[in-house]
């Protein structure tokens, strides 16, 4: 068995059964399991009154243009003024993505290859406090049509690493599946009086805990 990552996976495994961890929408000839890490963030900007179809098509085209897999999209990011823009919300909802909003002054600190006057959202870098900390300034794809645009960026490295271990908080099957929690782990949880953990993991097992005394 071989494990391949985004940078080397295509053609590298030579027909052996392979686990591919990649957001690139490419397939090996041999047997393989593809794990799509939640490594991408789609920044969306639009004029008021955009339709879900227009936004959806633009995002799909932006991903397809760079062969990026939609299952690797973690969320849609946009400016907070667009928090109620139904076209953006519906397009994200149809695809099962959450919408994350940022104030304009945070987004304006993020560099994009082709700056636009249109409202836009893009990925940032931890190097500057004005940019969203969870993101990195690598633009993987960009698409514009009329007064709409979609940009696909890559999340910060540490999150990618976490994702590759199945630690991502999302709905995909993986080692987060409830029926893969061992009986021994459940017993240990129920014996404990104090639970310490990452917030998103605590959420996953909260219902297994015994009620607090008193």
């Amino acid at each position: 068995m071989a494990v391949a990552t985004a940078s080397d996976h295509v053609g590298a495994a030579g027909g052996h059964p392979t686990i591919v961890i990649s957001d690139v929408d490419a397939y090996l000839a041999g047997p393989a399991v593809y794990y799509r890490p939640p490594s991408l963030i789609v920044g969306v900007g639009s004029a008021r009154g955009v339709s879900a179809r227009e936004v959806g098509m633009l995002i799909d085209e932006a991903l397809a243009a760079e062969s990026l897999h939609s299952m690797s999209v973690r969320c849609v990011a946009t400016v907070d003024l667009k928090a109620d823009e139904e076209g953006i919300l519906a397009a994200a909802r149809e695809r099962g993505w959450e919408v994350v909003t940022y104030p304009a002054d945070v987004l304006s600190g993020v560099e994009v290859p082709n700056p636009s006057e249109v409202v836009w959202a893009e990925v940032g870098t931890p190097a500057s406090p004005r940019r969203p900390r969870c993101m990195r300034q690598v633009v993987r794809a960009e698409r514009r049509a009329g007064r709409r645009e979609a940009q696909v960026g890559q999340r910060h490295g540490r999150h990618r690493k976490a994702a590759a271990q199945g630690q991502a908080r999302d709905r995909r099957a993986g080692a987060g599946a409830r029926d893969l929690v061992t009986p021994r782990a459940i017993t240990a949880l129920q014996r404990a009086s104090v639970i310490v953990g990452l917030d998103q993991y605590v959420d996953q097992i909260r219902d297994l805990l015994r009620p607090a005394p008193g």
């Binding site: 068995m1 494990v3 059964p17 047997p31 399991v33 794990y35 080692a175």
Partner: peptide, 20 residues
């Protein structure tokens, strides 16, 4: 006490036979 868990790579490798 360490309680063993099923890590994603192990869970994923068990899908291999099925997809092959």
């Amino acid at each position: 006490d360490g309680v063993p868990g099923i890590t994603a790579a192990v869970a994923a490798s068990n899908l291999l036979g099925r997809t092959a």
